[in-house]
Design a protein around this nucleic acid. Sequence first.
DNA 1: CTAAATAATGTACACGTGTACATTTTGATG
DNA 2: CATCAAAATGTACACGTGTACATTATTTAG
Lengths: 333, 333
Amino acid sequence: MKRNQVTAQDVARHAGVSRVSVSRTFTPGASVSAKTRELVLKSAAELGYQVNHLARSLHSANSGIVALIASEVETPHRAEMLSVMTEVFQSAGKVTLLINTNGSDASVKDALMQAIRFRTETAVVLSGTPDQSIAEACQSNGIKLVLINRADEIENALHILPDNDSVGEIALNALLNAGCETIALANSDTQTASILARERSFLKAAQARGIAVRRCTSGLTTYESGLEIGTDLFSRGTRPDGVFCTTDLIACGVMDVARQRFGLQIPQDLSVIGFDDIAQAGWEAYQLTTFRQPIEKISQACLDWSLESGEEGGKIIIPVRLVLRESLRRPAL
Amino acid sequence: MKRNQVTAQDVARHAGVSRVSVSRTFTPGASVSAKTRELVLKSAAELGYQVNHLARSLHSANSGIVALIASEVETPHRAEMLSVMTEVFQSAGKVTLLINTNGSDASVKDALMQAIRFRTETAVVLSGTPDQSIAEACQSNGIKLVLINRADEIENALHILPDNDSVGEIALNALLNAGCETIALANSDTQTASILARERSFLKAAQARGIAVRRCTSGLTTYESGLEIGTDLFSRGTRPDGVFCTTDLIACGVMDVARQRFGLQIPQDLSVIGFDDIAQAGWEAYQLTTFRQPIEKISQACLDWSLESGEEGGKIIIPVRLVLRESLRRPAL
DNA sequence: CTAAATAATGTACACGTGTACATTTTGATG
DNA sequence: CATCAAAATGTACACGTGTACATTATTTAG
């Protein structure tokens, strides 16, 4: 019950050379005469031969495989992240295993187990937090661990996270500069490290100035939650005229419900700030002022660290930038 | 320069059993006593051992790897597709290699070469069209080929495409039922098989009824193209009051420019139909009537065929369904 | 042309795993 | 306890590749 595939042996026979000559032809820097290389390449092309990287990688140190572990892949921000990540890793000759951790809590562990089974060089965790035991299992199998937007510290892993602490101050300033007087914060109920950090820094900045903030949370980090939060915000109590949403999806929901159900004009009646700079934030219907993370830089940092030989982890704080659009009454300076 | 990893040998030593016993413990249906199995599992957990699937797969027929080949992964429809596909394949114990073919034409070929190198069981091509030579190379390496939304026929490959031919008739009827009198078609300039097919079937249906259709195309299949097309549609000639857009992204652009720049009300002044049913189509700001493909079914069909032992290809036409929302004046019956 | 140096090829083994076959252990039956 | 069947374990090899080492062919230096 063997699978039918073209092997180096087949090419060797077809080209009338030895099997090692085939191997050497496809090994950069190996010693083969121009003539036999020619023969081998021709036969390989004819037979449709490609080096079996699975076999190669059980001999050499590197498998050339990187695992991307993420949930909610269909979400705009995640999808962009994955797109850039795959591009960056591919341009370095790596190949990416996309492991979808939908829902289940245990699934991050399962995902990392898969990463081990396929002897991934690196595992980039974009959602969920691995516990120490599985992290150790990764490392004892020579797998480097990168955590994106995770607060929890894991020994020897690389942590990449946006500068959430400075976000609150910037957002608050922008809202105040826009002339907002009743400030609100819209967040999901998800206990994700990064959105909690944004919330915390916003509340802290407000407290430092003695400004009251109405905090309104609901559901998951989705557009639909934005609708709910918006409904709650505008139908009860004093209407806020400035909202910081921890996510663009939530912001879009808040904006839509503000306009459609409450007849509010943006930015005349309401200023909104989001986070992520998803494609829709730039759409005419929203023109949302939001924070952008340099996804390319994050991906590049992942790759660079992944290629390093060292073992020690680290922490990279990525600066974020406020992208000014029309959802603020007067652009902040 | 060996990589440090835990092997079955290590586990065997640690558990005081033979290496094969370890192998058998992780091979369903193999004969191991409960006692040694216990020992092995305990040691494996302690050492963080996971079976090396790369090594396993060069002995057995199946690698357990499936390749998803796509460009524009950050796009809503693609992202959803990938999300569902990975879920479906993962639930069957497979692992997915995401290969991003951004831009370059040759890159589909490169992607398939990667698929061969990693001895993928199946390669699902979501964008770009492979030529016959590389398709043959895949098959001589035992890789099954699935083409999604590709018109070109490839020997022994599975072709899955939506029922584009019936789309035109349905869309036209819906627009006419909504009372539209000046009909337009908005499309990108991309020569993608599926959107060309939709355009053709729409024009054909209109011609069969003697209805004139203004055809307006521009750029890539993006939101921004929608803006351009919309600008062109509403600033020159008779204003259409019904538009079929071959893609939701284009539809969103058309809707936005219609409202923001031309003050048109939807659906009072303009009825719009899209295709794909991306998440944004359901957002309050759009409420776009659009066609939905059963992505889960498509993915499942992929998986099923992938698991089949047979070699022969086939063609599956997937029915599409019109999702009625508020972008049509009067809902079609 | 010979000797030495270099390049090219061949041989043998290693990587980590699964499995056919042979062997040993266990358990059941008389 | 003896006998036999079944279960468990061990041995040896295979999967497709890379590479150290030995060997042969080719080039260079003298």
